[in-house]
Amino acid sequence: MAEIAYWEAIRRAHDEEMANDPLVIAMGEDIGVAGGTYKATSGLFDKYGPQRIIDTPISENSYTGIGIGASMVGMRPIIEIMSINFALLALDTLINAAAKIRYMSGGRVQCPIVMRTPGGTAHQLAAQHSARLARMFMSTSGLRVVTPRGPIDAYGMLKSAVRCNDPVIVIEHEQMYNLKEEMPDEEFFRPLEGAEIVRQGEDITLIGYNYSVHLCLQAAQRLESDGVSAEVLDLRSLKPLDRETIRRSVEKTHRFLIAEEDEAAVGVGSEIISVISEDCFYALDAQPVRIHAADVPVPYNHRLEKAAIPSADDVYEGALKVLGKI
């Protein structure tokens, strides 16, 4: 066991998967000689060379397409997109090609690519560097979308994503790259599917994914000093959703809140409320609450930015609202 940061966990997963299988390659802007914007591939260029750690030009749509084409003949590319905002440029090859080729070919051709990209607000990066977009990917048939909340999942899910035969989008977060966790030294894998109860509770389920799990955990801490026992559920996979684990938790606590960093409209929260309504409506004792970003492009000014993005306090207050305490 040793403490390891999120970025180091990703780096270790790359290293092990590349050592394990010569068909695994990584490609992206500045990932090679420069070592990666968040250091996720640092040192690997020297170890694996320019044929396997590929510095690409700033051509997101086509280098993603090249990764997809390579995956169609057996390669296992890990494609890094520097920021999820830039993934918008790659939507044609990702959504029109990778997500559909297995289906359009009647199951005869597959595209086992991994696309890694940080989505989320950092510090005053303004509207064009603060998109979340998870909701857009989770609404696309033919993709898997996972959202590791910490180093253990970042490592274990990336390794599974490389070996899985489907296109997998791994959504990371700029504010989590330095987050640390104790991690076993031995190799392990974390499954791509399955929500996880990260804190047991009785009175309310706080549902989060990616960074918002941490907001839920902080809120749960505060609720505990108020005598409220909050359960925290990490969705982990946005596509497919683990409806079973969500249902079981809500049937236990009878109340829930969903916290997302994205805008609310047609978002993760609306989907979670929908599936809970369909699966266990009568288990609910209270109206749910959605914690989400304001419906604005993310502003630069730090006060405005803070006001636009949900905080642990917002989750705490939302929980009190569900519980009828305010």
């Binding site: 044929q51 086509s62 993603t64 169609m72 057996g74």
Partner: peptide
């Protein structure tokens, strides 16, 4: 276009 270049990259890599 890019898919073709990817197929070629796969061949070259192997």
């Amino acid at each position: 276009f890019p898919l073709a270049a990817g197929l070629a990259m796969g061949c070259k890599h192997k």
